[in-house]
């Protein structure tokens, strides 16, 4: 009979009207500035550069300016200039560092491919989303000083992932030390082929694609037989 469907519809809306006062499932709006969204751990927005310490972000950047991310970035929003000199990295090895590292967040599409391809765990995705600016170039083109954030911050926003990364880096470091020790012993005894690092296989993050770049990862690079000073004094 005419009107049955209409009455059914009215019943549904009435149910929602009443339900919105007592049923949280029917009243789903969050009032944003007061109620901040609960971001899931996986949430990603724009990339940032991981530095080991907060005191000296520029001195402890993990980035070695290998330029893989620059090459792989689909919208090509990353610009890197290698340094002329070398600075010791977290493991104490002298490394090239980025003299210029800039990301144009107006171009970035938050795809996180830079994170996936980075062999040094130097670039990660941030969760800061309220980044409006009135100046397109001054406000949205971020340089390395603005991009650098300490590892502690990384732990804060992606705890699980950061723990995995730290574990993996520690394993790589241990493997490197082991290799360095073996190499030192071998040099003392006789020339012997270098042992390939099993660091990546030992790493727990199986989902992470194996680094297969032209630039050698830290683990397989020959490391000076210097004990790694974890907390380093700030470099000039």
């Amino acid at each position: 009979m005419l009107g049955k469907g209409l009455l059914q519809g009215l019943a549904v809306t009435a149910k929602n009207l009443v339900g919105s006062y007592h049923d949280p499932a029917r009243y789903v709006t969050q009032e944003y500035p007061e109620v901040q969204p609960k971001l899931p751990e996986a949430y990603r927005n724009f990339p940032f550069l991981v530095s080991e310490t907060a005191d000296d972000p520029m001195g402890t950047l993990r980035c070695v300016a290998c330029q893989i991310c620059e090459k792989e970035c689909p919208p090509q929003c990353i610009y890197i200039e290698k340094s002329k000199d070398k600075k010791p990295d977290a493991t104490g090895k002298a490394q090239i560092y980025p003299a210029v590292f800039a990301i144009d967040t107006a171009v970035c599409m938050s795809c996180q491919i830079c994170v996936e391809v980075c062999p040094f765990d130097a670039i990660k995705m941030d969760q800061e989303f309220a980044i409006a600016a009135t100046d397109r170039f001054g406000g949205l083109l971020l340089n390395r000083e603005q991009l650098a954030k300490p590892n502690a911050y990384y732990h804060q926003i992606h705890p699980t992932e950061a723990a995995e990364v730290d574990e993996r880096l520690a394993a790589e470091r241990r493997a490197a030390e082991e290799k360095a020790r073996l190499a030192a012993a071998a040099k003392a005894a006789a020339p012997k082929p270098a042992v390939p690092a099993a660091a990546a296989a030992a790493a727990p993050g199986a989902a992470r694609p194996a680094p297969a770049g032209s630039t050698a990862p830290a683990a397989s690079a020959p490391v000076d037989p210097v004990p790694p000073p974890a907390p380093r004094p700030p470099s000039p």
Partner: peptide, 25 residues
């Protein structure tokens, strides 16, 4: 979308599949 976000990190631009599988378990 919340499910997609908690899995892939983004609500709509998931960028989740990879050649031979998926990015995250």
């Amino acid at each position: 979308l919340d499910l997609f976000e908690s899995l892939s990190g983004s609500r709509m631009m998931c960028n989740f599949q990879r050649f031979g599988g998926c990015r995250v378990d």
